[in-house]
Design a binder for these strands. Structure first.
Length: 786
DNA sequence: AGCTGTGGCAGGGAGG
DNA sequence: CCTCCCTGCCAC
């Protein structure tokens, strides 16, 4: 195994590490069946800038100036020397004079940017080697789920409200053990003590739960505080340590209260789901039940209890609730087994524990590999570069309307391939670690994937799959890392080089397809939808066509057929729908499918697309009339017309921004504030529009969805009729104006006649391709030399 | 205590 | 009316 990827330490038995004061680590070591803790010191280690200011500084303590940049690398101190502390004080004075903001303290000194963690991680990296000798199945995992009682009249459970309390604790573990701590038999105080006893007794390596960070653990901790119970869940008998954290999945930030339990790893399947969906973007919700069904992991005959009915079941049908809670932990176990495998195998590489890896972002993972190697070779680390990336992927739409048959061809791993073939790496990577890592990870991923495809045995196969997907996660993040402002090894110019090269490859592909008389419909970043030329009809012929396309591209860049479809409905850039040969419809793009659209709009648009792709114009008209009627007669449920939005910021931050005039008021925040309950960033708010003005002004016509009463519907039908017509407008470009008006009209003076209705295909832009995009071979020198 | 990127569309508020 | 600007959500 490559030591740059997997670390160098030989100690194979360390289960977990934990910081113990300022200058020591506590290390948990497995010997046979038992686990013992041992304290180990770590060395002082700092990043200091402007080291020439250090009085008494000696060359042997190592410093390096980054050539040509005029910027000094940070000083790495690997050992103390007599004048060191004076030097640190000196540096500090200098920094304070220059008003550098980030000062942290170490011992009795204020020190700039103490990085105890990466250093100890480096020095203690052996901690993860235990994982190298294990498979995921060897882990002892315990699942935990609590059910709480909500005082009638309240919608949400609250650990500090009189009457609210824990009523059930369901536990299960990977040995098949299951246990319910029942609030009918024990007082809450005894329940909590029983919980501690169970966990200590089972002694799991991993504790898992769905939303365990934001719900179960904080709730349990709050109830413990109330009863004076010590929640000594740690392997050393310590109580969990909580800290507020936030992580972002693409643009979406998620705040949570992370909890560390000494000697164990905490896994929240909600976080796993979000990070999974950040790539796929397929899921409708991150609820446990939906997710379990989505992955096909729900036990047969699973018991369901709606969240707001938990207290009712407790009062009336407690046995059902017990069954429900047990099904919850079983689903959590299955979900975690499905999703945490890749984090587990990443832990074999990274200098962090399993629990940390599972909630870390990709950039931090890549950086840890780079930093570990730089520290091992005692080489200074660069500072992040200022600046910004300017270029992204190439997107275009050439034809709109319904076309087919259509082929989707994409460049496999576009950005990683460009970085590898063009040797694009951060300019500050003196040791050349970056590309080496990318190259080795790519090789390992291909090997692992091949091995997986060869393997029949399901457990081994899923192990290999988890491994190769963990490599893939890292590989795909190398490009993002280059453009990341706070990355030590960022390089915006190189990131631009990657995207510009990607654009060039796409333009080359477009020209090549056109040269062969194919019709290019839509292009986005690394993939092209096109109608193949006459004579290219079967799947084999299409594959062959794509192979030829691929051969026109330079070494290291491979184009593959990613899919073939009966028809495409091309609407706008990044917005289209596909009709597969399996007759399934896939809809893409924020203007056609968006969680910010009212549910009725989503289903309406979906059905419209279905009808258009099947040429069923009569059905299209009927559909419009049906919705028209239901809206006017208040026949829709609040779930259908409520708009659901995610709050990105805290209410306090929002208010501040509004007050400062930096931001407009928005309906979702208005409703959230009016509801009076505490809101966190990331919460979803459902609201609807009242009154009868089709263009309501201001944010005073919105009401929380919970307040809607079907007996006295006060939803604004004029407004929702306007919305229906806005959704219909999307389809105007596909028809002649008179046909469009006839279809999307409830006027029944003349019955609708679908005869003669035809679909339009329109050219959007015909961007002339420049000379250098000519697909002749041998014209790629510019970027192949890199 | 920790945070990967750009491009594109829709919708709403503010102000001309 | 329109344009500008911001936010949310989505594709890759």
């Amino acid at each position: 195994m490559n030591p740059v990827l997997f670390g160098h330490s030989p100690d194979p038995r360390i289960v977990a590490t934990q910081q113990a004061g300022d200058d020591a680590m506590r290390v948990y070591i497995r010997t046979g069946e038992t686990i013992v803790a041992e304290e180990r010191p770590f060395y002082p280690f700092f990043f200091l800038s402007e080291p020439e200011l250090i009085e008494g500084f000696h060359r042997k303590h190592w410093v390096r100036r980054l050539e040509g940049t005029g910027v000094y690398g940070h000083l790495c101190v690997f050992e103390e020397w007599p004048a060191m502390w004076d030097a640190v004080r000196h540096i500090l004075d200098s920094y304070n004079r220059h008003a550098v903001p980030k000062i942290e303290s170490y011992q009795d000194l204020d020190v700039i940017h103490l990085i105890g963690d990466p250093v100890t991680q480096y020095l203690m990296q052996s901690g993860r080697t235990m994982f190298k000798e294990m498979t995921f199945g060897d882990l002892h995992r315990l699942q935990l789920d609590i059910e709480t009682y909500t005082t009638p009249g309240h919608r949400f459970s609250n650990a500090t409200r009189a009457g609210d309390r824990i009523i059930l604790v369901a536990l299960s573990d990977s040995t098949g053990w299951e246990h319910v701590i029942d609030g009918r038999k024990l007082s809450e105080e005894r329940m909590l003590e029983e919980l501690v006893r169970c966990v200590r007794d089972r002694d799991p390596d991993v504790i898992e739960g769905h939303n365990i960070f934001n719900f179960d653990l904080p709730y349990i901790l709050a109830r413990c505080a109330l009863h004076g119970v010590t929640l000594s869940l740690g392997r050393d008998g310590s109580v969990p340590r909580s800290f507020d954290s936030r992580t972002s999945f693409a643009e979406h930030a998620f705040e949570y209260t992370a909890t560390d339990i000494a000697g164990r790893h905490v896994i929240d399947t909600l976080l796993l789901l979000q990070s999974y969906d950040a790539v796929r973007r397929n899921m409708e919700s991150y609820g446990l039940k939906y997710a379990a069904q989505y992955f096909g992991l729900s036990p047969a005959g699973r018991t369901y209890v709606p969240g707001e009915k938990i207290s009712w079941y407790w009062d009336n049908e407690p046995a059902t609730l017990v069954a429900y809670a047990l099904d919850d932990v079983r689903e959590t176990a299955a979900l975690s087994a499905h999703l945490s495998g890749s984090s587990f195998y990443l832990t074999q590489m990274l200098p962090y524990g399993f629990g940390t890896v599972a909630r870390m972002g990709s950039a931090a993972k890549i950086e840890s590999l780079l930093v570990r190697e730089y520290l091992r070779r005692k080489h200074a680390l660069p500072r992040p570069r200022e600046g910004a990336q300017t270029t992204g992927g190439y997107t275009d739409v050439f034809l709109t309307g319904v076309l087919g048959p259509v082929v989707h061809a994409d460049v496999e791993s576009l950005y990683p391939s460009i970085m590898l073939t063009g040797s694009i790496a951060p300019g500050t990577d003196d040791l050349g670690v970056f590309l080496g890592l990318l190259k080795d990870l790519t090789t390992m991923r291909l090997d692992t994937k091949r091995a997986m495809l060869r393997t029949e045995e399901p457990i081994e196969r899923s192990r290999l799959d988890a491994m190769q997907s963990s490599f893939k996660i890292l590989i795909n993040s190398f490009y993002g890392y280059l453009g990341y402002n706070r990355a030590l090894f960022n390089d915006h110019a190189r990131a631009d080089e990657v995207t510009k090269t990607g654009q060039k490859i796409l333009r080359t592909m477009i020209a090549a397809i056109r040269a062969e008389a194919g019709k290019v419909v839509e292009v986005d970043t690394d993939g092209i939808f096109f109608v193949p030329p006459v004579g290219v009809d079967t799947a084999d012929q299409e594959s062959a066509f794509v192979s030829v396309l691929s051969s026109r591209l330079p070494e290291g860049i491979t184009v593959a057929m990613n899919g073939r479809y009966r028809k495409i409905l091309s609407y706008k850039k990044k917005n289209y729908a596909l009709l597969g040969y399996d007759n399934k419809i896939r809809i893409k793009g924020s203007s056609l499918v968006s969680r910010s659209m009212e549910q009725f709009g989503r289903t309406f648009v979906h059905h419209c697309i279905d009808s258009i792709l099947h040429g069923n114009f009569d059905g299209l008209h009927t559909l419009y009339v049906q919705y028209h009627t239901s809206i006017l007669s208040h026949g829709l449920d609040v779930r259908d017309f409520a708009r659901v939005e995610t709050l990105k910021d805290t209410v306090a931050f929002y208010e501040e921004e509004v007050k400062a005039g930096r931001r407009n008021r928005s309906a979702a925040y208005t409703v959230a504030i009016a509801s009076g309950r505490p809101v966190r960033a990331g919460d979803r708010i459902a609201y609807y529009i009242t009154g009868n003005d089709p263009n309501p002004r201001g944010t005073d016509h919105c009401k929380a969805a919970e307040e809607w009463d079907p007996n006295f519907p006060d939803d604004n039908s004029a407004y929702y009729m306007r919305r229906l017509n806005e959704f219909s407008e999307k389809f105007a470009v596909f028809f002649q104006p008179q046909d469009f008006r006839a279809i999307f009209s409830a006027d029944d003076l003349f019955p609708f006649d679908p005869a003669g209705v035809a679909l339009l295909i329109s050219d959007v832009v015909e961007e002339p391709l420049s000379e250098e995009d000519d697909p002749r071979p041998g014209t790629f020198g510019i970027w192949l030399e890199g």
